[in-house]
Amino acid sequence: MIVLHNGEETEVPEGTTGKQFLQKFGYRRAMVKLNGEQLQVITFSKMTLNEGDEITVKRISGGG
């Protein structure tokens, strides 16, 4: 199925959970919004993604 990952169409398997999604893209310390609503990473991780979901993930920036 296709989801929007930071605005880009991205294919993920049906039934992908938030946790699997974050792992797939190597996110650890990050802020997450699902369809415009901010979620705690722990809450997002337990959810199952749906076709067309818009997922915004921003890594916590550490450079100076």
Partner: peptide
């Protein structure tokens, strides 16, 4: 706090 990485920041 200010953090940068590539073209992104917080």
């Amino acid at each position: 706090y200010g953090g940068a990485l590539a073209a992104s920041g917080m």
